[in-house]
């Protein structure tokens, strides 16, 4: 069954969505079958493609909308929101 879910998160990492978080997001998105898209005010990108995520350029405090479509959409959103909430598992 195909599910569709959308959530909005705020980037709290002081460095914003820089190189390391982008790779962490892409690696996480690849683990799910669902098509996951991230969008800010300027553009929408495929979350599983690190090259596209790197072009988002979202600073700290900006809002990102995550949209997942597929059999594990809700699980994918849960995992990605957790990643954002935990500042991408990064210490600096």
């Amino acid at each position: 069954m195909t599910e569709k879910a959308t959530r909005t998160v705020t980037i709290t990492h002081p460095g914003g969505l820089h190189a390391r978080p982008c790779v962490a997001i892409a690696q996480m998105a690849k683990q799910f079958q669902s098509q996951i898209r991230l969008s800010n005010r300027r553009q929408t990108v495929n979350a599983a493609d690190v090259l596209q995520v790197l072009t988002l350029g979202a600073p700290c405090g900006s809002q990102i909308t995550i949209e997942a479509r597929g059999p594990d959409a809700v699980a994918a959103l849960d995992a990605l929101c957790k990643l954002f909430a935990e500042n991408f598992g990064m210490e600096s």
Binding site: R20, V23, L51, S92
Partner: peptide, 24 residues
């Protein structure tokens, strides 16, 4: 030490980006 660790993380990023570029 933090700077050296930062280099390590960026090297991992470069490797991941390089893999993605190769696929393209």
């Amino acid at each position: 030490f933090a700077s050296i660790h930062h280099f390590l993380e960026h090297l991992r990023v470069i490797n991941a980006v390089s893999d993605a570029l190769e696929e393209q």
